[in-house]
Design a protein around this nucleic acid. Sequence first.
DNA 1: GGCCGAATATATCAGGCCGATATATTCGGG
DNA 2: CCCGAATATATCGGCCTGATATATTCGGCC
Lengths: 186, 186
Amino acid sequence: MESLSSTAYVILGLVREQPRSGYEIKATVDGTTRFFWAASYGQIYPELKRLAEQGLVVGSDAPTGGRRRTVYEITADGEEELKAWLRRPPETYEMREEGLLKLFFAAALEPGEAVEILRAMRAHRLATNAQLRAMKPIAEEKDASYPLLVLEGGLEFTEWFADWCERVEQRILAARGGSGGRGAKA
Amino acid sequence: MESLSSTAYVILGLVREQPRSGYEIKATVDGTTRFFWAASYGQIYPELKRLAEQGLVVGSDAPTGGRRRTVYEITADGEEELKAWLRRPPETYEMREEGLLKLFFAAALEPGEAVEILRAMRAHRLATNAQLRAMKPIAEEKDASYPLLVLEGGLEFTEWFADWCERVEQRILAARGGSGGRGAKA
DNA sequence: GGCCGAATATATCAGGCCGATATATTCGGG
DNA sequence: CCCGAATATATCGGCCTGATATATTCGGCC
């Protein structure tokens, strides 16, 4: 009995709420967990088959007209698997931030160029914050309290990060001596 | 001319500072960038060969006794590649947080169990914070100002995250009605 | 009625990357 | 002299991304 990947549990968690097709699972992930756990078609479809083989989900044909469509729902075994996973302590904590990597090596550039990196990072976080903000009414409407909690955490995180970028930018500019070539276009 | 992976630039950035072997690169990554950009032997060794083929680094034999050892240093072309990359806006922003995923699906559990997830997440962040704190004197000693800036960002982030976990835990406990079975051992 | 583009639905694949493992040598300590 | 830790390189299964391919259906427009 091989243990499942975390992505398998995303699928179990989503089909537990309601029966869904692979396509719907992907769309839901993109609209919710994507910011802290993404999933691609290349994982979802094979994983659904594996979960079906193990009896943790069951698929049934639900075609729309002549287009083939398989909708999956969770089984009692699947529900038990999901709960057992939820009760085990989390193991994966990963981050890949190319901006921080560039900042780490910024000594190879002029100070004005380091500031550009921080501005790009800040702009990215503000954009993510706006996306999350737009999702909030939808989560509130569904009355999904844990997803809402997580979403609010995302809002706070992006705000903290954008603010940090701004403070570091100010520190670098101040260290340069207060005046001198502005360097960039903003 | 295929464009390089971000991991290739980590290598370029590190061998720019000083010539290093694959083993030393891995050790340095584990001691510095690991928190926002990790790299494994399975990437480092093949990547060093590719970079050498493209003339961005040069390797030279530097055996210790009878043990084979290749030390790489950056070339002028490699330095140009690195700077060009540093000047391009960052593209990769990824996070994989199994704890947030579990919290997202916590409706399948009792509230007391959701609290356990938050405690595990908080403990992890506090542990990371302690690790970063231990690294700080080393970074200060080296007078590496950008790496130090990034390290301080990591300290602030882990503190923010741990604090968020605690606040969410309090909210959940309060929503449960102030009293009732405590559930867990701490 | 017919066309087009967007959405629905599934599948595949190259390549990045992780974690574990294997192999061999050298160094420090007891 | 032996052993365990550190140095050094290499390999591999498996997860995951992003792009691409293939069909079908739906909505809007003229």
